[in-house]
Amino acid sequence: MTRLRLFLRHPFWQAVLLLVVSYLAFTVGVRYVPPLFRVASAPVPGSVVLQYMFIAIVGILIFVSSDELRWRTFKQPLHATLVDQDKRWLRGGLLVAVPVLLGFATYQQARPKVEAPIQLRSIHPAPPGQITFRGKAMQLSGLENPLRKSGSMADHLREGKRVYYQNCIACHGDRLDGAGHYAHGFSPAPANFSDNGTIAQLTESYVFWRVAKGGPGLPREGTPWNSAMPVWENYLTEDEIWSVVMFLYDQAGWQPRRWEASPEERKNPTGAKQPAAPNAPKAGGAK
């Protein structure tokens, strides 16, 4: 018991222990603990574990070296392993094990893999300033949903619902959660509108652009060939798209992101425009 306590008080073994504990927390912990509280979780990607472990190692090194005494005790076993006479077997073993491990890691990195290369896909790439909708030029920035200013909202929503259930439901699902019947066949998965990271972050004109131009209309960083979203301008009218956009927000319970008032408007606000709202630089994908 006392030996164990001594062992645990030693900074070197504390560091090793911390390293193991943090590794387990990042891999097993994140994977299995949240489900105990009915929160969804999944394995953490290797790249993120690597990043976390780097931070953890920096933290541990700072911990052992921020106090002179602790730092000296920490180095003791390392020093002993390198010079002590009675540890020559351990030394020899390390001399073999370290190159073998490094060699194995190199092999793992370099061996041919059948996996597709990792692609970095920007979920919400920057929209173009202007698009051509069926031959008609449309200025996207500052564009509001025209239907919100005319006609009965209930009608627009009914129309939007009809359009959604005729065209979108197969992929985006009955609950707007991106889990439609065909969803499992796609990578990337269809957008989940009930998540606060999708339409809740975007202006209606952005959503209009995404619906109208679909996957092929994505800029390069959106890796257009990945997205299965059709070009809906070929099938739906302008009003239909606007109404389905309105329906999405209404049904998912989000408010569309508003446009910031331009500096001129802030100085002399006109009655027609909505008051300048505080806003800041992080729409799109808050990353």
Binding site: I118, Q119, L120, S122, P128, P219, R220, E221
Partner: peptide, 11 residues
């Protein structure tokens, strides 16, 4: 460099 490289092309 670890991050997959992404270049923004001229549209």
């Amino acid at each position: 460099h670890i991050i997959p490289q992404l270049q923004s092309e001229v549209p």
